[in-house]
Design a protein around this nucleic acid. Structure first.
Length: 440
RNA sequence: GUGGGAUUAGCUCAAUGGUAGAGCACCGCACUGUGGAUGCGGUGGUUGUGGGUUCAAGACCCAUAUCCCACCCCA
């Protein structure tokens, strides 16, 4: 007798049962349609990459979270992908013949060995859309406009996309005169401004070994409104990078407006920082305010990443939507369309008894041939049990064929939601079912 | 990776260190040609896992796993 293995999942990983899968498929479907509406095309890449493909791209903190993999006898060091941007960059470098601008989307799982929490998992799907081969801010604006289209279509009303530019942060570093090794600490403190306030940022910077004099200089700078690029441009006028970053942001906002993005949902925040090391230009992040769940989307421009795989570097920009968090929020706020059922099955055909089984199977196969999702009962059980099952599954219609129906060459069609029943001719079943399902 | 909380039936939760319970769900019967209503009855547990203390542990101690919360970071 074999011992039973306790069924368990690895930490931070989950199964998705059919009921949830239907909701998930709906969300992914919306995202895919919008991606394609904006002219992006699908791409698929392997779950595993060579370890060297991933290392040195994300920064030391993020790199610790990469899952390594190797076959028992394998010679290559492999790793589970950490995001979809680095694999994209690898693909672009390997396929120089791809027409530019190259616009692709990819919806696929990525793995990060973080400590799990709500909205944070070790295996999760990212939905990425990126544009490779142009430096135009119009591309960044198109990404933003697309994020808005997706979130709107999913029913989100309370969200805001924050914008900043790495070039501004770089200039801020130059302005502060802080040594490069301390820059990380400076940025991290800065990023928390809206959370911990000026005093908090001061404490944090001092704790991060940043000289008091420098801290005051930074505090003085961030006393300027974080959403006022002109004020910052004036202050940073001696730092051409910063001015350039601010001009890019202004162009980006203007283009986005031109694409119908409402201004109150776009928020320039010159203190926002994003962790991944490869960003070089505009960076963006969308957050919802009601359930506190972190960011729903994150992205930015990474003009140097492809250059790590090819002599011919290419500018690129894009975003990632976090479908797990989107789904967690939609669950909490019950945002799914009311007609999204709990099953794909549209009709359930009961089996009355052994004698009538053949008739039921024939009806079921006719329905299936007509493209209607149909289930039949396998065992010889009472109608009560079968109806109970169909109702519990959320199947909308049930067909009953007993001796009376068989004799009259009809079937009984029952609507499980209303309890309504009608008799229909055997030959009319497909036609009538099609009509019923089309109305719903 | 750091700190805290939780873990008891399928689900939500009880049980002064002394015989593990309730509601819902499930199954059966009243109702062998019809689910959701009502009534009655029933199944269901190595109390997350492994050790320890004790005459006795669901409870106390240690370890460990998972989930949740706050950091860190992020989708």
């Amino acid at each position: 007798m074999a011992t039973i293995v306790e069924p368990r999942l690895p930490r931070g990983m989950r199964d998705t049962l059919p009921g949830k899968m239907i909701q998930r498929r709906y969300v992914i479907g919306v995202i895919e349609r919008v991606f394609e509406r904006f002219g992006f095309e699908p791409l698929q890449t392997p779950v595993l990459e060579l370890e060297q493909t991933l290392t040195g791209k994300y920064g030391p903190d993020a790199e610790k979270l990469i899952y390594n993999a190797r076959h028992r006898q394998g010679k290559e060091d492999l790793a589970l992908r950490y995001d979809l941007s680095v694999p994209l960059s690898r693909v672009v470098a390997m396929n120089p013949e791809l027409l530019k601008p190259f616009k692709r989307y990819q919806i696929a799982p990525v793995w990060r060995a973080e400590r799990p929490q709500k909205g944070r998992y070790r295996e999760f799907y990212q939905c990425d859309a990126d544009i490779v081969g142009t430096s135009s801010m119009l591309a960044d604006a198109e990404i933003i406009a697309m994020i808005f289209a997706i979130l709107n279509e999913l029913g989100f009303r309370q969200f805001v996309t924050k914008l900043n530019n790495r070039k501004v942060l770089t200039a801020l570093g130059e302005y502060s005169g802080v040594s490069p090794v301390l820059l990380g600490g400076l940025y991290r403190a800065l990023d928390k401004l809206d959370k911990i306030g000026r005093e908090g940022v001061r404490d944090e910077m001092l704790q991060n070994q940043i000289p008091a004099e420098t801290v005051e200089k930074i505090l003085d700078l961030i006393a300027l409104p974080v959403d006022n690029p002109d004020a910052w441009a004036e202050r940073l006028q001696d730092y051409p990078r910063g001015v350039e970053g601010i001009n890019e942001l202004k162009a980006l906002v203007q283009f986005a407006r031109g694409m119908g993005v409402s201004t109150e949902r776009l928020q320039i925040d010159l203190t926002m920082v994003r962790g991944l090391e490869y960003y070089t230009g505009p960076i963006f992040e969308t957050v919802v305010t009601e359930p506190k769940i972190g960011s729903l989307t994150g992205g930015g421009r990474y003009d140097g990443l492809i250059g790590l795989f090819s002599k011919n570097s290419l500018p690129a920009t894009g975003t990632s939507l976090g479908i797990e968090r989107i789904i967690d929020v939609m669950d909490e706020l019950k945002m799914y369309p009311s007609d999204l059922g709990t099953t794909v099955v549209q009709v359930f055909v009961t089996v009355f008894d052994g004698e009538r089984r053949a008739a039921s199977l024939a009806v079921a196969m006719d329905l299936r041939a007509a493209g209607i999702d149909t289930q039949v009962w396998f065992d010889l059980d009472g109608l009560g049990k079968q109806l109970k099952y169909a109702a519990a599954r959320g199947i909308p219609y049930v067909i009953i064929i007993g001796p009376d129906e068989a004799a009259a060459n009809i079937v009984t069609l029952r609507n499980l939601a209303t309890g309504e029943q009608q008799q229909i001719a055997r030959t009319e079943i497909v036609k009538i079912m099609r009509e019923k399902l089309a109305q719903a």
